[in-house]
Amino acid sequence: MRRMCVMAMLLLVTCSVPAFAHASEPAAVSISELVSMQSGLDGERVRFSGEVVSEQLRGGDGHVWLNVLSDGIAVGVWLPKAEADKVTAFGDWEQDGDVVEIVGVLNEACDQHGGDLDIHGESVTVLTAGTPREHPVAWWKIVPGLAGLVIAYVVMWRMRRREERPS
């Protein structure tokens, strides 16, 4: 009897391992899948990654918003400020933001936030720190620019002289 109980306990533990694994580590999804409204993940814990493209925006209750971008689509993540503080760089023209992995709950229409499609984030992991973006200057653009301005000036000057000339 005791042996059977041990066997049953072992079986139970073995069977529940995937379930526990699922709880701690949800499957990775893309942002485009999250906003497709067909993911079937509404209210589920999700894991995704992307570049942070906003500063921390006040979110109330000790939380802030971060907007995270991947494949041209950005999604809002509402998460505790302490977690968001791990992010130090957000993307704009000057720099690429930190690439982060977010774990949180997907809300296709969040009751707490006026129906926004958002993520209530639990944790943030910085995968790659943000780096400055290179913007080489294309000096050749000066040539058509200045040439055009000179042409415009000469043409307008000639036009004015023509108009001032007594007919």
Partner: peptide, 25 residues
């Protein structure tokens, strides 16, 4: 300090002004 975009507008303004002046005359 967006130097390349600044040149985009120098170029754009130059080309636009030239076309505008040629039409206006």
């Amino acid at each position: 300090a967006e130097w390349d975009p600044a040149l985009d507008y120098l170029c754009g303004a130059g080309v636009t002004a030239a076309v505008g002046a040629l039409l206006a005359q």
